[in-house]
Design a protein around this nucleic acid. Structure first.
Lengths: 169, 169
DNA sequence: TCAAAATCGTCTTGGTTCACAACTATCTTG
DNA sequence: CAAGATAGTTGTGAACCAAGACGATTTTGA
């Protein structure tokens, strides 16, 4: 299915100018595609994401890992349980601080991630296939930059206390 | 996408090269910022999105509207209830097909949307503030194009049957 | 012309997700 | 060593979403 509705009508609409809607739609589309692929490697999508972060840099505490991937620490527990049960990751207590757990990828974790990543990147590549190389690299660069933008900034200035506490409705 | 297994990489970590994660993060950031703003105009974020679609083009049935914004029809009912209760939208039976409801924005709906949209666009503008005008327009163009990409394409080929089912998990 | 199937909007439901508040155990510090 | 902070885990209640059931209508085709 095309992400655009039936009567497209592409360019014009106001809807298609709304960044939140565009991001939501793209995230959703990628998610449904990647979930199935990643599951073939024995992971959930969150598991894949977290594993990527773990492999990328060794982690001295789950809290810092949670912040790195922007997931609630309580949710991270479940994700790590899954990864650990699958033998992709190891938790061991930090000898220096016995409250904390050092999280590190196993060798199999690294291998599995590489395999999964190849598949995921194939999906992403095919999403971007219509764009020329410059546009692709440009897009990634821009997105990376935007993600770095402090939430305070996009919250209209009248921002006071803590950083990224989401507001409920 | 680098095929380099271990040693990469330039710019930033692997996580920040993952499109799904980037989109998810950006959507989430925008959502938390826009929810509060849009609520000041008496709408939920979904209400805002749907109202945009309704104002953009008159709608002959809720089903087509649901497809246009990519929301489940049963969820759309609640959103329209909210908008109608707030007097921003009107539902009336289609004389030609009494099963269907014609959905149209009220005058106040149009006014409220314009006001809300100004605020929302301010938020989005400040998110993009670091980018020069070319990059901003380029980003929007690219995103619009990607949203039009058939999911079948990004689902690795082994996609077969019906048109719109791609979003279901 | 009439019965069966399809369609539209709505309501209900089951399962999933999520953020936040406890709670336990450690650590820090005064 | 007491008081408070911090790490990880567990529990809870709300939000969310997709899918099924249903009544009302329309379409189909026998």
């Amino acid at each position: 299915m095309s992400l655009t509705p039936t009567g497209d009508q592409v360019s014009a609409g106001r809807l298609h100018g709304d960044l939140h809607w565009l991001f939501a739609r793209l995230k959703q589309g990628l998610a449904t595609a990647e979930v199935s692929v990643v599951r073939e490697h024995g992971m959930s999508l969150w598991g894949y994401t977290v594993l990527m972060a773990v492999v990328e840099a060794p982690v001295r505490s789950q809290l810092s890992l949670a912040q790195a991937v922007s997931v609630d620490k309580s949710k991270l527990v479940l994700v790590l349980d899954e990864l650990e049960a699958a033998g992709l990751v190891r938790r061991r207590p930090d000898p220096a601080d016995r409250r904390a757990r050092i999280v590190e990828a196993t060798e199999e974790g690294r291998r599995t991630l590489d395999a999964a990543r190849a598949d995921v990147e194939a999906i992403e590549a095919s999403l971007l296939a219509d764009l020329d190389a410059d546009a692709q690299e440009g897009l990634r660069t821009v997105l990376r930059r935007l993600v770095g933008t402090p939430v305070a900034r996009i919250e209209d200035g009248r921002q006071s206390d803590n950083a990224c506490a989401a507001d409920r409705r």
